[in-house]
C-alpha cells in the first residue's frame, strides 16, 4: 500500500495514511511536515485512534498549529499549519 502525499493546491498537501497503524501515521506526519514549508498546510487523514493524541502532542511540541480537527466513523482528518 503506497503512502499517499498529494498536493491539493499551492501550499496545501494531503497525507493519506488510512489503514496504517502505530507508529506509521505519526511517523509519516512528522516526516512530511519536515518536508513542507513554514506556513504550508498539511491535511492528515488517518483511522488509527491512538495516533490522534500522538499527532496532537507532536504538533504542540514543534509549535505547529492544528487548525481543524474532524472525525467521522473512525476516520480522522487533521489540518496542520506548519510553524
Amino acid at each position: 500500500m503506497p503512502v499517499k502525499v498529494k498536493k491539493l493546491e499551492d501550499g496545501v498537501y494531503q497525507l493519506d495514511v488510512k489503514g496504517y497503524v502505530c507508529p506509521h501515521p505519526q511517523l509519516y506526519t512528522m516526516k512530511t511536515l519536515e518536508k513542507i514549508k513554514s506556513g504550508d498546510i498539511l491535511e492528515v487523514v488517518f483511522d488509527n485512534p491512538s495516533s490522534e493524541e500522538s499527532i496532537t502532542a507532536l504538533c504542540n511540541k514543534e509549535g505547529h498549529e492544528i487548525v481543524e480537527k474532524r472525525s467521522d466513523g473512525g476516520t480522522f482528518v487533521y489540518r496542520i499549519k506548519k510553524a
Binding site: 502505530c22 505519526q26 491512538s50
Partner: peptide, 23 residues
C-alpha cells in the same frame, strides 16, 4: 486503555521516534 490510548509500545516509541512524552 482505549479511552486513554494507553500503550506501552507508544510510550517508548513516541519518545524515541517523534519526541513525544505523553504516554
Amino acid at each position: 486503555l482505549q479511552w486513554g490510548r494507553f500503550c506501552f509500545a507508544s510510550a517508548w516509541r513516541d519518545l524515541i521516534a517523534i519526541g513525544v512524552t505523553r504516554m
